[in-house]
Amino acid sequence: MSRIGKLPITIPKDVDINYNEPEMVVKGKFGTLQIEIPEIIGITQDENRLMVNLKNETRSQRSLHGLYRTLIHNMVIGVSEQFQITLNLQGVGYRASVQNQFLILNLGYSHPVKIAIPEGISVEVMQNNTINLKGCDKQDLGLFASNIRSWRKPEPYKGKGILYKDEQILRKAGKSGK
């Protein structure tokens, strides 16, 4: 049995879970998320706890046990608290701003980079170089953050680029003259 899969999921009071095979819908104050659960996984719900069980025990099914328990747990946390990712822009002249449903980035290119903000994700820019992303779906939030970061990945010589909060860049010495 999976160590992660056998842990119970605590359901907060403001979260409502509806499970009709094979679909699970989780509703909370920050949104609604849904997932399709395979037949091999059984779910039992008490008053404020949710248990994810396996119907059979094969190697591939044990791996799905932990996966779906984690996905359901992330859905419960997302609709009750929201996930947050902070990005820092490091570089001379690097700036960010939000206009309508677009994130505008000045990253040293000859043109500003315009990125559409997906539905369900809120973007807040602080001090022109710190971007706070919030959303209830952890997977979509991480994908959007990596999309932003792909425009200027951190480089090891000057340390410029888009960094996650508290990320350290290993710096290289570069060329040394004679």
Rank of each mutant, 00 (worst) to 15 (best):
G5K: 01
G5I: 08
L7E: 12
I9N: 04
D16R: 13
G31N: 07
G31L: 08
L33S: 05
L33R: 08
Q34C: 09
Q34E: 10
I35K: 12
I35D: 04
E36T: 15
E39K: 11
G42N: 12
G42D: 14
I43G: 05
T44A: 08
D46C: 03
D46P: 01
D46S: 15
E47I: 15
R49A: 09
L50G: 01
N53M: 15
L54K: 01
E57R: 03
E57L: 10
E57P: 02
S63N: 10
H65Y: 09
T70L: 12
I72P: 00
M75V: 01
G78Q: 02
I85S: 01
T86F: 02
L87K: 00
N88I: 13
Q90F: 12
G91Y: 02
R95N: 12
A96D: 01
V98K: 06
V98N: 06
L103V: 12
G108S: 07
G108H: 02
S110N: 14
K114F: 11
A116Q: 11
I121H: 04
V125R: 02
M126L: 15
N128V: 10
N129C: 11
N129D: 13
T130C: 08
L133R: 01
C136G: 10
K138S: 11
Q139S: 14
G142D: 13
F144Y: 14
F144K: 02
S146G: 05
I148A: 08
I148G: 04
R149G: 03
S150L: 07
S150H: 09
R152K: 15
E155C: 04
G159K: 00
I162S: 08
I162C: 08
L163D: 03
Q168R: 09
I169F: 06
L170D: 13
S176C: 01
K178N: 07
